[in-house]
Design a protein around this nucleic acid. Structure first.
Lengths: 154, 154
DNA sequence: GTCGATGCAAAGGCTTTGCACAGCC
DNA sequence: GGCTGTGCAAAGCCTTTGCATCGAC
């Protein structure tokens, strides 16, 4: 897979921003482009986003990274993960996998993704029962990866 | 329900501590007792624990509250919640409901609990597929409670 | 009496914010 | 050209830690 396949047209960002009366800046494009470059499965912290952009000589201040992550999340282009283990992390929001969950090794942080329609069904049932309007349904499976499970035995 | 029904014998704490070569202090008893007093459904932050203890004239420093919450969690007597909305929170670990999940209103913070065997099944399947050893399986349903859903319409 | 636990205050991450300047529309 | 976004540095949480003292065993 040497080819890069951008998930969102540049205009998607432009349009979303314009609708909210906000501007398309190089910084915002760089942050979103970074997530598109690394693909859907990657979960980055603000600090990591900042570091990666610096490495590719794309100058964005850390404060702006924070501001941009919040903005892109609120626009639904990024999604915040709920993994207490390693602080706040973000990933590209994927319409293709609305019901994707995380399997996290609590020892080394290794994260695998998986899908499960059953989980969404359970969430919908619970929301319905209490009269809530469901927004998002996130299953976090805390576990030990094979390597760490072996290490724990010792 | 004017009667209080303690979930754990005082000796449970004493034993757990003793096994780890640690001491049964009034502070540790007070923190655990607070959680038992308020019951299973309550989710408290460190700050709230501190405040509630102060209100009942039980002097425990905030630093000790933090230390104790971590200790009790690592012993499995308390359980940390993964609700990004309101910071880190703890609840009494309940063997009775190993598969209990949370329905959270992202607007007002109202939290309802529910159970679902299907979720645990999905988590086990995912863990098994990747060779992970499952520790915990937590479903967070982010939603709008009836009141907040109505308010949003406006 | 010993060694772990507590309290206090200071240090430490991570995240947000105030302000002047830069640059998108 | 106006007004939003950025960068920088400072401020703000929340949480942890160092150290002297206290107290459980």
């Amino acid at each position: 897979m040497p080819l890069q396949t951008p998930r969102a047209q540049p205009s998607a960002l432009r349009t979303s921003l314009h609708d909210r009366g906000q501007r398309l800046t190089p910084q915002r494009q760089r942050v979103l482009a970074l997530f598109e470059r690394i693909g859907e499965g990657s979960h980055l912290s603000a600090e990591e986003v900042h570091q990666r952009l610096l490495r590719s000589s794309e100058r964005v201040s850390l404060a702006t990274v924070y501001r941009t992550l919040r903005l892109l999340s609120s626009m639904g282009l990024l999604q915040e993960l709920e993994l207490p283990e390693g602080g706040r992390r973000f990933e590209l929001a994927s319409d293709a996998h609305p019901d994707h969950h995380h399997l996290v090794c609590v020892r080394c942080g290794r994260t695998e993704e998986f899908e499960s329609g059953a989980v969404l069904t359970a969430g919908e049932a619970a929301a319905g029962q209490h009269g809530f309007r469901l927004l998002e349904c996130v299953l976090n499976v805390r576990a030990l990866c094979p390597a760490c499970a072996a290490a724990e035995q010792a």
